[in-house]
């Protein structure tokens, strides 16, 4: 009798098919704890003031002129930096895509990115100081472009080198001059790369921490979030983080819509 039971148990254990998806369960828990709950806490804290659920933090932020100014200023710096990166980076990506060895050469443009950004920022600052350039708005933007240019070049290069050459060949066969060929075929076909590049530069620029302080004593949104939390203003800090988070999520939805997973580019 007992043997019988043991046998059935044994059979049951054997019959229990370990689906391999079981291996993901610990990580699902991990993601739950260290990604989802922390982000949910930001949401909760944004609506929490003096132990009550209110919009007080939002109202506080909307009255906080200094923070709004920082937000507006970050936006401006972000737009200028992104624009400059696009203007400088597009030709680089375009030339590299046309070169046979472009796939290897692009690594040279990405390489500096792997050196810690504090090191590069401090080096840039030292160059400015050695040249006698006074630190300020201009140096901040230069530092940002310098820091984030690789993020623009990489997705643009991926998209541009995947464009089927026959489009532009057909256009020039049909009599279009090089400028028209570029404007009517290459440029429209590279829009997914432009969008990823713009997002990959804009988001980190506005939320950057420390770069702008080191390069010109300018406070941007990322510094401002850190500052609020440092001063124990968790509510307002959370609202500001929430604003940033919405930016990130919206831009990713946009990215997905345009890329449909094909132009996924990573540094590695």
């Amino acid at each position: 009798m007992q043997k019988n039971i043991l046998l059935t148990i044994k059979n049951k254990i054997k019959g229990f098919h370990i689906t391999r998806s079981v291996f993901a369960y610990p990580y699902i828990l991990f993601l739950m704890f260290f990604v989802i709950i922390p982000l949910a806490l930001i949401l909760v804290n944004a609506f929490l003031a003096e132990g009550k659920i209110t919009f007080q933090n939002f109202i506080d932020l909307s009255k906080d002129g200094a923070s709004l100014k920082v937000l507006g200023h970050s936006f401006l710096v972000g737009v200028v930096t992104t624009g400059l990166c696009l203007i400088i980076g597009y030709p680089v990506a375009y030339i590299l895509a046309k070169m046979p060895s472009g796939g290897v050469l692009v690594i040279l443009f990405i390489l500096p990115m792997w050196v810690n950004f504090l090191i590069r920022t401090l080096a840039t600052r030292a160059i400015f100081q050695a040249m006698g350039v006074s630190l300020g708005e201009g140096t901040v933007i230069f530092g940002m472009v310098y820091n984030y240019l690789p993020f623009m070049i990489l997705p643009l290069h991926t998209t541009l080198s995947n464009i089927d050459k026959s489009y532009s060949e057909a256009a020039s066969d049909l009599g279009a001059d090089p400028v028209t060929v570029f404007l009517k075929t290459t440029l429209p076909l590279s829009i997914p790369g432009i969008i990823s590049g713009v997002i990959m530069v804009f988001i980190p620029t506005i939320s950057t921490f420390a770069i702008s302080q080191l390069l010109g004593g300018v406070f941007l949104f990322g510094d401002s979030i850190n500052d609020k939390f440092n001063h124990g203003l968790y509510g307002v800090g959370s609202v500001m983080s929430l604003v940033m988070l919405v930016f990130v999520l919206l831009s990713n939805i946009l990215l997905k819509r345009f890329n449909k997973g094909e132009a996924k580019s990573s540094v590695w």
């Binding site: 260290f34 990604v35 709950i37 982000l39 930001i42 988001i203 950057t208 983080s241 940033m244 990130v248």
Partner: peptide, 20 residues
């Protein structure tokens, strides 16, 4: 969800972990 830590801005992630 796995993409979130990659795409999220670092400061927001740092602050959210600190809150947690």
């Amino acid at each position: 969800v796995n993409q979130l830590p990659i795409v999220n801005s670092e400061i927001v992630m740092a602050v959210s972990l600190m809150l947690f």
